[in-house]
């Protein structure tokens, strides 16, 4: 069953002057539990496509349906609330809140959702167990390595039990060991929690482990392969 559906999605920058077709007529469907990488050269539209799917950007034309909801029709407040309950984000530069501890960063999103303290506590402990950072619960991001921060970012993205996670170049700033570690964790979470992961990446280490590869060129889908 598809949880994400894009329909003739277009994003054109500088429509008035020199139009740049960042996303060009993209129609895709993503099933629950996918582990998908969107690949392609720099500037091919990977990040723009992720932003459109995540409701961070608005398409010039076309529609994005998530679990049947057309998110392009939601107003700015509705889309924030929608993201909170349905989408998890992992960013290239980790982007944890620097004044909150690792535990508080993960808990914060659940607080925004209005989840009770008890449930938050148990979920945080479960996630930190899964990412292997139980001993770093009270460390602030500044006291964690890049790899550890990114694992916390993954835990934060998963905390609210979203329908899917969008990860924009999540391993771009990580060394090989951290990348491998992070991928192991994400794959495990994908299997255990059946969470859908959609990455944009250049990283061959990520590409190797993805189960579906969507290749973009000049904003167009040129390949969409299921990998065994």
């Amino acid at each position: 069953m598809s949880i994400i559906k894009t329909k003739e999605l277009n994003k054109i920058y500088d429509v008035e002057t020199i139009p740049v077709h960042a996303v060009n007529n993209v129609s895709l469907e993503f099933e629950e539990g996918e582990f998908t990488a969107i690949i392609g050269p720099s500037g091919c539209g990977k990040t723009t496509l992720l932003n459109l799917i995540g409701g961070l950007d608005t398409p010039t034309s076309g529609e994005v349906f998530i679990n049947g909801t057309n998110i392009t029709k939601l107003n700015s407040r509705e889309i924030i609330d929608f993201r909170l309950r349905n989408i998890g984000f992992v960013f290239q530069a980790y982007n944890l809140v620097p004044v909150l501890t690792a535990k508080e960063n993960v808990e914060f999103i659940m607080q925004l959702q209005g989840i009770s303290k008890e449930n938050r506590e148990s979920r945080v402990l479960q996630l930190f167990d899964q990412i292997g950072l139980k001993d770093k619960l009270n460390n602030r991001p500044g006291k964690l390595s890049g790899g550890q921060q990114q694992r916390v970012a993954v835990a934060r993205a998963l905390a609210s039990k979203p329908k899917f996670i969008l990860a924009d170049e999540p391993t771009a700033n990580l060394d090989s060991k951290s990348t491998s570690n992070l991928l192991d964790i994400m794959l495990k979470l994908n299997e255990v929690e059946n969470t859908t992961f959609i990455f944009s990446t250049h990283d061959s280490r990520v590409i190797k482990r993805a189960r579906r590869l969507i290749t973009l060129e000049d904003g167009k889908v040129v390949k969409d392969d299921i990998v065994k």
């Binding site: 995540g54 961070l56 407040r77 924030i80 609330d81 993201r83 909170l84 309950r85 998890g88 984000f89 960013f91 982007n95 809140v97 620097p98 999103i109 925004l112 959702q113 934060r156 993205a157 609210s160």
Partner: peptide, 16 residues
């Protein structure tokens, strides 16, 4: 600004 943007993107309302 970037930090605020991240917080909004993960679901924090601007009013907060």
């Amino acid at each position: 600004r970037k930090e605020f943007a991240i917080m909004v993107s993960i679901g924090m309302r601007k009013s907060k």
